[in-house]
Amino acid sequence: MKNEVLNIKGVCFGEILWDNLPTGRKLGGAPLNVAYHLNKLGIYTDVLTRVGSDANGQEIVSLCRELSIPLTLFQEDHILPTSTVEVHIDDKKDVRYEIVYPVAWDHITLGELELQTVREADFFVFGSLSTRNDVSYQTLKGLVKQAKYKILDVNLRAPFYTKERIFELIGYADLVKMNEEELGFVSAWLGLPPDMSDQSKSEAVMKHFAVPELIVTYGAAGAIYHSTTGHFSHHYPALKVEVKDTIGSGDSFLAAFLSLRCRNDKNIPAEEILEFAATLSGYVTQSSGACPNYDATAINRFVWLNELQ
């Protein structure tokens, strides 16, 4: 990893919140996490979100400013509160979330600034959770039409999803990221046999929705990147690290993936893209919270230490 500032711009749409962890609260929300890492990796990325006009919202804005996260598309709600999530981590480091509803990011509104920013961006990242309310969902539908390269991060959080909504969102995307469990849900909704291999399930999902790229993450078993344009399915193992928590590991994986996938100055092999994605994800997994501080030196040292194992 090198410290670079690239001529690439992105927009992440959706939730921003306080994760209330057993050890204290952390800034969170999948779109915010992805944008944090992309900006750290030299790709200017806006976050289109909404916070309340309360102390929690003011503290989020202040912290995002400190973290050099652009605030241009932050909206303020004078009725709904800033989002908070109760996070429970069990002995196996698995995470369970209690997500408050409704909150400010359920009412993200659409204006000319939002349309123009997405129109000029190289990519647009959105998640399924942010569409649980119709106001934000209608805003998303207006923005997707303007986006050049559309990335859906499937994020199934009961009870905030339906089969119909997930199917519609997948249909908008050029690249879909989901985990093994989410692949199982989508495959079952399509009526695929439960004993079908994940490879066949992935191919069936991509064919059904005409999605050219699909990433399926498998936690400690790594991830597989499927591409119909490249005619390949490439598996890359996860790094062996001491897990502190898994919060945001998938978000950092996606950010690192996009930081190389969207480079317009060179054609980078899939294996190299996945290697870097697995590296950053591993670093985050052995850190506390979704947005740990790091620089090129820290990541390079992490790679070196991992290679010594």
Rank of each mutant, 00 (worst) to 15 (best):
M1T: 07
V5P: 00
G10E: 08
F13S: 02
F13K: 05
L17C: 14
L21G: 01
G28V: 08
Y36A: 05
N39T: 03
N39Q: 08
N39S: 07
G42K: 13
T45D: 10
V47G: 04
R50P: 09
G52Q: 12
D54P: 05
Q58W: 06
R65Y: 01
E66C: 07
L71E: 10
H78T: 14
I79C: 08
T82C: 09
D90L: 11
K92G: 11
V95A: 07
E98I: 15
I99L: 13
L110S: 01
T117K: 14
F124Y: 12
F126S: 07
G127K: 07
S136R: 03
Y137G: 00
Q138A: 09
K141M: 14
K141E: 15
G142K: 08
V144T: 15
Q146W: 13
V154T: 09
L156K: 03
R157W: 00
A158F: 10
F160M: 12
F160Q: 01
T162N: 01
I166M: 07
F167L: 05
I170N: 10
G171P: 13
Y172Q: 11
Y172T: 08
A188W: 06
L192W: 09
M196I: 04
S202V: 07
H208Y: 14
H208I: 07
A210F: 13
V211S: 06
E213K: 15
A220P: 04
A223D: 03
Y225A: 02
S227E: 14
T228V: 15
H231M: 09
F232V: 00
S233G: 00
H234D: 10
Y236A: 14
P237V: 13
V241E: 05
V243T: 14
V243I: 14
D245A: 08
D245G: 04
T246C: 14
G250M: 04
A255Y: 07
F257T: 01
R263P: 01
N264A: 14
D265R: 09
A270M: 00
F276A: 01
V284H: 03
S288C: 00
G289C: 04
G289T: 02
A290L: 12
N293C: 10
Y294Q: 11
A296R: 02
E307Q: 11
